[in-house]
Design a protein around this nucleic acid. Structure first.
Lengths: 343, 343
DNA sequence: GACAAATACCGAAACGTTTCGGTTCTGTGT
DNA sequence: ACACAGAACCGAAACGTTTCGGTATTTGTC
């Protein structure tokens, strides 16, 4: 019973050749308006849906794109990024009848193999490259595999098209915010140096601090986790007199900022009275914790949307230009306040 | 240059017919050991990878399975479940050369359409049904579409094969834990009643409370979010004398428990001195907050692993039996303690 | 009314596998 | 020496589409 209706059924019902059906349904020229109507009608009557498999073989396309996430599941757990990012991707993929193939590799090596097998049997027509590392081995790999790819928040000299959300503006706003509040002793908690976006945020921070004419301040490396924030708070606050502690800290993502705040409280630093803390990302959780977290809000959904649009264009063989979406902006909430008066 | 090596190339090099190559490479009988070796060698020399598209068309299979997530991105954001769940799925899919197609629908209606189009062009060979609702419309739909499916944490009378992780044991352990600590005034914060697992946890709770001979206590409906926990804390604690407040509360997931704890603190209830709070899930965040969260720890990775194994079996036409994985167990941390002494 | 050009339509090949029926070959038993 | 079973191998069809070259038909021109 369950034999699907194919193009030959439609052709038979409309009394034409299958090539005509194909032309009619794909709006190719060379078929009269009259028969086109008849064919469309027949297709509709029979509930014809072109077989993806047939199309795929003939068109040499997979009609799918790939996203390989290489993260520890437990980091992913609290990661706001991919949910919204994927949501944005879907928005574009769906109307074009493309699908998203998701792979997860915890080990970096494993990840490379995923790309390799994705390419080997041509399961995808293109891939996203997100969470880029410095000298990321995936870049030469996809190039070698001849796989169209779009970089997400890549460096400016990235060798393939890339979509970016500016971080400079937001960070500059934050530093200005700190300066206006009278802070002089700043500190930064970075992400792991092997991620390029960690380095980007770090440089933007240093530039902004210099531009405001403030002292450089300490920089400690975190790891984008809650725990990393806790450890950073220990490094910057534990065993120090109030006068030696920084009064304003930016953490390179919200999760670590939240960990930082929690530990700061335990170490006797009240937020924001003694210490201002800000994050980066704009995750929901930041509006729930007390005090609510000042942050630089990103829009991963938009990033995904634009990335998908670009990838499909690249798959179609178009030359696609880099895109900069609306930069991440400062969102002031209650974890930042005036610098404490020194005794 | 980029023309892929196909089975005919292999056949030519080995000096045999393509049908023999196919037989040899798929370990079908009817080809001598000698020529099999020769064929395998030729395939290796040429770096032959069978085309998924060709196989797909011929075998009438997509070699992919689907997962449709229907959640608000912002709930997903803090959701530990899918990261690990998907990780578990991949473990099984990968060696079998299957891929996972992920779709996200925020609207329930949208979700149904996703399943429909997934089935219409046969993009997947089967799907997972997770986060089941009561009278979930997806069930009749996949049935009508003739799509193999596996339920995840479905009810016992679920009409298709399903993998479950027991929640009864852990909840019974938690209630016993509360009883042993001297708590008599209990309360439960549920999930939205339209999710079956919310109902399941609620019933298990009531049963366990009765079994321990404790008074029923209050039950308020939450929504699995941090905010829902905050609201529930207001409902149960605000404007009440200590003697009227519950002394032990279980929230139906960790995120809402964390929200509950935060608000409880603001309302002057110290955790765990005045009030014991427990969650359900076992997310990483629960080990970070202070006090660390007592919870009932689930293992979504195992759930995904088993679900994928079952789905592939179902796709192969096997009759697959339900599977119960190791139940979720109580993990006592520091958010629960002895009941306060009444004045 | 003849001829060229444009249009509508068709048939077959191509995409890369698997499968199935058929042919050739080898070896066994009589 | 012959029949015959079984193994090894082959050719072609099938899966469902798109594309391309070709033929028949219409239209337009002089």
């Amino acid at each position: 019973m369950n034999t699907r209706v194919t193009i030959v059924d439609v052709a038979a019902r409309a009394g034409v050749a299958i090539s005509s059906v194909s032309s009619a349904l794909n709006n190719r020229p060379g078929v009269s308006e009259e028969t086109r109507k008849r064919i469309v009608q027949a297709a509709q009557d029979l509930g014809f849906v072109p077989s993806l498999r047939g199309r795929s073989l003939s068109a040499k396309r997979a009609f799918a794109v790939g996203l390989v996430v290489h993260r520890d599941p437990y980091v992913l757990e609290s990661d706001p990024f991919f949910g919204s990012f994927i949501g944005g991707i879907e928005t574009v993929l769906d109307p074009r009848d493309y699908a998203l193939i998701l792979q997860m590799g915890s080990e970096p090596v494993e990840t490379l193999d995923r790309y390799r097998s994705l390419a080997a049997n041509r399961r995808v027509d293109g891939v996203f490259l997100s969470e880029l590392g410095v000298d990321d081995p995936r870049v030469p790999l996809v190039r070698e595999l001849g796989l169209p790819a779009i970089g997400v928040n890549a460096e400016l000299d990235f060798p393939m098209p890339s979509v970016r959300q500016g971080h400079v503006e937001g960070i500059r706003e934050l530093v200005a915010h700190f300066a206006r509040l009278g802070h002089r002793r700043l500190a930064l908690v970075t992400g792991p140096h092997e991620f390029i976006h960690a380095g980007q945020r770090r440089r933007a921070w240093s530039d902004a601090v210099t531009a405001e004419g403030l002292p450089g301040g300490e920089i400690v490396e975190g790891d984008f986790t809650y725990d990393g924030g806790v450890v950073a708070a220990d490094r910057l606050l534990a065993g120090r007199a109030a006068s030696e502690r920084p009064t304003a800290v930016m953490c390179s993502n919200d999760l670590s900022a939240i960990g930082f705040m929690a530990r700061a409280g335990e170490l006797g630093a009240r937020v924001p009275e003694d210490l201002s803390v800000a994050g980066f990302d704009g995750i929901q959780l930041g509006t729930y914790v007390r005090p609510t977290l000042t942050t630089i809000a990103t829009t991963p959904r938009l990033l995904g949307l634009e990335a998908a649009r670009m990838l499909l264009a690249a798959v179609d063989g178009e030359r696609v230009a880099d895109v900069d979406i609306e930069p991440a902006r400062l969102v002031v909430r209650s974890s930042t306040g005036p610098a404490p008066v020194l005794r």
